[in-house]
Amino acid sequence: MSLFEVNNISFSYGEHLIFSDISFSIDKGDVLCILGPNGTGKTTLIKCLNGLNEIDSGEILVNGENIQKLSFRQISKHIGYIPQSHVPSFPFRVIDVVMMGRAPYLNLSSTPKEEDEQIALDALKALSIDYLRDKEYTNLSGGERQLVFLARVIAQQPDILILDEPTSHLDFGNQIKLLEIVKNLSDAGLSIIMSSHFPDHGFLSSTKVAIMKDKKFIDIGKPDEVITEDNLSKAYGINVNLIEHDNGRKVCVPLETNLKLNQDLFKKK
């Protein structure tokens, strides 16, 4: 039995089918990177995996239990989640935001105890951002805020971590740092499912890569086997060159499509 198993799930908004027949499984320490073009439904799929969206058919098993039969609280003890974007609310202190990760373990009538604060503080220390502790989370940079949310999900102590495009608001340098954090977390035993726009990310920290296109996974498997020039051109509709760097790392280079727009349309009238 795998830690997390997805069997033939499908989902639609009303009549509009988003995806069908998606299956995969991951084990302890696995990192699954889901690639795919804009609008294929990666975010919708991710929200199904942690129960935010209810699937139409199929089943999702975490530790052998069907998540449709679990309460939000039970799911939250197994699965942590960081959404793609966050609308800032009130200027809570960073430590208070991280402490929210303890909610699955506290009943409705209680507030965090000293030990919860300690767990939150340890999570900040684990990511070396304990100096942010008393700052307002609304005043942080995009990179710092992403780390704060990571600390919150670490304080949540789940088995599986689901990240929706965790690098999308980060600069060049912070992207690679985040992927290294993902690698460290998986080495520590966490299983991670993340979506990304960048095929390169699949090589950096993943043990498995899936490519989503036309309402299904067109391929899933080891990064080297899935991230191929052929698959990428199928997924993104452009030609791609895979180049091996000196240190053995592969990078994907998208080739120009020679797009020509009608210049007359841009002329001032």
Partner: peptide, 27 residues
């Protein structure tokens, strides 16, 4: 008074509240 800490979490938005184990509609 009892739910005052949960209000903090609800202020982060329904999806985050739910992923932290709360039932936003009920609370």
């Amino acid at each position: 008074l009892v739910l005052r800490w949960q209000m903090n979490i609800l202020a982060m938005g329904d999806e985050e509240a739910q992923s932290l184990g709360l039932n936003p509609t009920k609370i």
